[in-house]
Nucleic acid binder design. Structure first.
Lengths: 149, 149
DNA sequence: ATAAATCCTACCAATTTAGTAATATATTTA
DNA sequence: TAAATATATTACTAAATTGGTAGGATTTAT
């Protein structure tokens, strides 16, 4: 499966937008700075998010990014899928034809990965940016400039 | 995270043992043949499983492998951990100190991966070899030599 | 002895990941 | 219109990981 740092960066960038980008355009530069990711790399990531429709853009000077959907419609699952592709751990799960072994036990183990896959998807799909933002706001209460983890 | 083909092979090998290896030693050669994995590779995998105690061995001629624990105590989770290490998707989740960003939003995204991690672990840990074997037996009923997936 | 089996390490090729870089294109503003 | 700013797009690369091979060392049954 793929749960890369890239999709983590994507989530952090999107979350940054939800928290700090209400009703205004954010540049990649700002988002990258706010999440401590290299601007060039974040740009590449946002390019992918754009293609998936998860962010909207305005080009040129004074341009920037906004969320492509309401915060409560953007789930962690959508972000991961946009960046890392389907949430499937083993290729054999995705396309059955790659299951070349004749051992029938493979079919059983296949169910195992499907169950795991479903668990991941379910967990990822029920967390929205809105929820995470709320959690963030709550945590920040009375601890604005801590920078403590 | 890591859910590699290697851990899938390990699971298939272990499952093969549960199904075909009751009360007898199985050689890597047989297990590899039964699961359509290269013997040398399967041997390496079983070496790792041995170190984790998941299988027991008898060395020398007429030697071989048996399960290291009762079937109902060997979970998919234990197998995956033995082969691929901890079921943690992002390094930052495992050791907090690698969370070098100053952006507080990282902490929130960290919770996301922890939730996903927990979901994976929970799903993997509740599936035992015994259950999978039972499922296998049931599926095989009246369809012994199908080789259909 | 020798054959069969695990034990253990080293190595390698291919892929993936993480990231840099550079150039093209669009838009604002002076 | 020129300059500055920002996204769009593609190409490239270094490092790590993955998937797998190879081979010798050791142990044990016959």
């Amino acid at each position: 499966m793929k749960l890369s740092t890239k999709s983590r960066y994507a989530l952090e960038g999107m979350l940054y937008m939800a928290v700090y980008g209400k009703d205004r355009l954010l540049t990649v530069k700002e988002i990258a700075a706010g999440t401590a990711v290299s601007p060039a790399y974040m740009e590449q990531i946002f390019f992918t998010l754009k293609k998936a429709g998860l962010v909207s853009t305005v080009r040129g000077a004074k341009g920037g990014f906004t969320l492509g959907y309401p915060e409560n419609e953007i789930t962690v699952g959508r972000i991961i899928r946009a960046i890392d592709g389907d949430l499937v751990p083993v290729s054999c799960v995705a396309n059955l034809s790659s299951c070349k072994s004749k051992a029938r036990s493979n079919c059983i183990s296949r169910y195992v990965w499907i169950r795991i896959s479903d668990a991941i998807a379910k967990t990822a799909d029920k967390q929205t940016l809105e929820m995470l933002k709320d959690q963030f706001m709550k945590e920040s209460d009375g601890a604005e400039n801590e920078d403590i983890h």
